[in-house]
């Protein structure tokens, strides 16, 4: 374990130095990412500006959803670069090297690079989250703090799982499925709104298939002391973030399964 940590630190050091070598580019990237979220927020704001509020949701409450998504998504992105770029790793035959090392594949892929450019987004998400939490007047309790933390960690697990699933496809097709990116980004975009605005089938999709709602909408309902959506017991709200870990476990299993179908590249 301590060796694993040491190794991870070493990987991090290397990745930092590599990113610093192209310093101008790195700064541009971070700035770019920061501005991207700014633009996203502008869009949401424009929507609210024109139409007023979503029924039953104050701006602070929606900000809580937005904050949760935009805090956990960038953390997942920082960690998952190796999976995010996995398609090109496989195409270049570089995964051979990973397989030749006596270490867990997940550790090596996480260590491949720490995508620090996402820090800007993280800070912004954190700011919105604290704005939401300070603006909301609800009864604080230890359980609620725990639930929010759990939702955050669950969110990281969920987005990480999505990116792992995307990586898994690379074992079967060399086509660049950048559309999977739209899935993760689009998912993040979707989860920024309360699920109640979506038609029933979409709600079901985001709770049971790609359980984004389980780490945003449902725990937020519990924090705000609201009833569960029809068909779900109230207790389900508390356990919802756990679903994300199941999702991640399934995604990792799928990845392991894919490794058995890795075909390398002809040399």
């Amino acid at each position: 374990m301590s060796n694993a940590l040491r190794l991870y630190r070493r990987f991090l050091g290397i990745s930092l130095r590599a990113q610093m070598e192209y310093r101008a580019s790195f700064l541009m990237q971070s700035l770019g990412n920061f501005l991207i979220t700014g633009v996203e927020f502008l869009l949401i704001w424009a929507l609210y500006d024109r139409f007023g509020q979503v029924p039953g949701w104050s701006l602070a409450e929606v900000a809580l959803l937005y904050g949760l998504v935009n805090t956990s998504f960038p953390i997942a992105e920082v960690l998952s670069y190796g999976f995010d770029a996995f398609g090109s790793t496989v195409k270049a035959g570089e995964f051979d090297r990973v397989l030749l090392r006596p270490r867990s594949l997940v550790l090596q892929l996480i260590g491949q690079r720490l995508a620090l450019k996402n820090v800007g987004r993280f800070l912004q998400g954190l700011a919105v989250l604290s704005f939401a939490l300070s603006g909301l007047s609800f009864d604080w309790s230890a359980a609620k703090v725990l639930l929010i933390l759990l939702a955050l960690v669950g969110g990281v697990a969920l987005f990480f799982g999505l990116i792992v699933l995307q990586a898994t496809l690379a074992f079967w097709t060399t086509e660049s499925l950048e559309v999977m990116n739209t899935m993760t980004y689009g998912g993040a975009e979707t989860a920024q709104f309360p699920l109640s605005i979506y038609p029933a089938w979409l709600r079901t999709f985001f709770i049971f298939v790609v359980p984004l709602g389980c780490v945003t909408y449902l725990p937020v309902l519990a924090v705000l002391d609201r009833p569960a959506p029809a068909g779900l017991p109230d207790a389900a709200l508390l356990f919802a973030p756990g679903v994300a870990f199941v999702f991640l476990a399934v995604a990792l299993r799928a990845f392991q399964f894919g490794v058995g179908h890795y075909t390398s590249t002809g040399s």
Partner: peptide, 22 residues
Amino acid sequence: RTQLWWDLPVIESFELLRDIYR
């Protein structure tokens, strides 16, 4: 194809391997 880290000095690749292989 090289097994070394393209951007690193050779010795650092070696040290990294030392840690990877314990």
